[in-house]
Amino acid sequence: MALENTDIAARKGRVPMVAQRIILISVLLTIWELGSSLTEGEFWVSRPLLIVERLITMIQSGELLRHLTATLVEAGSGLLLAGLVGIPLGIALERFPRVAKLVEPIIMGLYGLPRVALAPLFILWVGIGLASKVLMSFSMVIFVFLMNVSEGVRSIDKDMLDLMSTMRASRSFVTRRVVLPAIVPWILTAIRIGVGLALIGAVVAELIGSNQGLGWFIEKSAGRLDTTGVFTGLIVLMAVAMLANFMIVSAERRLLRWRGNSR
């Protein structure tokens, strides 16, 4: 989307969207910086320059990499696992509508449960290591996959499936050539939503019991009244989410070329 906007803007002789965004962010950062130093609010909201300084020292000491890797591994594994379980399960639920009807209340009940409340239980079950964080991320994301994939399968053109059966296509042929390609956009959307949720899951689990990770780092900094540390952690999390989103958007553009411009 950003690219197309840029093209149009360039043709109309306007400042490209990317530049506009950079300007907006710079303005916001300047206001933050000046506002904080003029009102001596540094203790409460820190300052961009302090955060940059902290980032540099953390990169140099390797501390950032350690926490970042921990959180990324937790959230990434949770997301991957949720996809591996959720995609086949979502397809299966649509294939066996009676089973789907049977288990629907249970799924909706679990979905409605605030999964953050499950964190203590997960820690009790699998300890405070990696597993409890992965499990937490997984429990946040699995429903997104399940529902998106089910909806995707449901939205497949009935005539298209009928046509395949008149040509006596096997079930595996239909799955490979019709169902899976049809749900690719739905899976990409699920991943896009899931990235944020997986990060939430990992960070929440870290807050409750851990010795590393960005969530743990934020919690530790807050305990020491180190606002700059808290904001550094938050900024890194935000950057991760933005980068992931950017990657998914470019994957979408490549994988969904067949949609053309008519979307």
Partner: peptide, 16 residues
Amino acid sequence: AGVGFMFQRDTLLPWC
């Protein structure tokens, strides 16, 4: 076998 169908709406695979 040997029976082909064609619908009013095209039922082409949009990703092909």
